[in-house]
Design a protein around this nucleic acid. Sequence first.
DNA 1: CGAATGACCTGTGAGC
DNA 2: TGCTCACAGGTCATTC
Length: 297
Amino acid sequence: MPELPEVETVRRGLAPVMEGARILSVEQRRPDLRFPFPADFTGRLAGRRVDGLSRRAKYLLAHLDDGLTLISHLGMSGSWRIEADGHDNVPGQFHHDRSKNATHDHVVFHLAPKAGGRARIVFNDPRRFGFMAFAESGELAAHPLIGKLGAEPTGNMLDGALLAALFGNRRAPLKAALLDQRLIAGLGNIYVCEALWRAGLAPDRAAGSIVAKSGGPTTACDRLAAAIRAVIADAIEAGGSSLRDYVHADGALGYFQHRFAVYDREGEPCPKLNCDGVVLRIVQSGRSTFYCPSCQR
DNA sequence: CGAATGACCTGTGAGC
DNA sequence: TGCTCACAGGTCATTC
């Protein structure tokens, strides 16, 4: 369920255990997820120390002490969980109650955390749309999965001018343009719906149509950029959002925001102040879009 | 090149 | 209870 905020939340959950930890061994329980695992996957990880854990768009990046980067993606249903390993206690961790069956536990990392003790982190993914890959030392920026990603929707990079430049004369609907990871990287179906609602823009408008010919003080592109950043920042702050089978890295469910302004709220009143619209569901390029036809134009 | 479609895979909830 | 169907937060490959 992971869009950027969920991946960032996972990163923050994993970092205290993974960063500085030595990888003792890795269990790989099947030959592939969405793609085959890299050659000698477990062999290249065993014995390495994790220098840092970062994120690019929806990719989680583990930087190893020999320069190798482990790239992982959660797909639609992937999750990580942390468990104590052996009899040692890992400080601050971690239940493994969760009557979750282990059927879809595909990869297990056995770690010696910096803080001491033993931990294991487990990658679970029922639908197996997730995957793992390596970027060789020095090749991360040009990696096929990473190199063509667009702007991060966090921080100051994303503003109205950038959106105007990206959208140009594109005829694709706003919804499709915002989902295109080559333009902005990290938005998914939920946060695109939410951002368009916040910006008051209809999802089926051509992306190019919101680019002002001669700009007023605040253009539609400015509003949209601000809305995207706010939606993402709020979600990261809330610890990400979850539905159904998403599991927080430390197993803490119920931590997340479960309600959205328009996403999955077909037929409900638009929550915007003084708007009497009703949330509509339409299908764009095969995926549900939720929006308010009254205040999104 | 941009845009639209199907494919990948399992689980869940709704409706009968 | 059990069956079938529609649908699910992502990306890639193929086609026009």
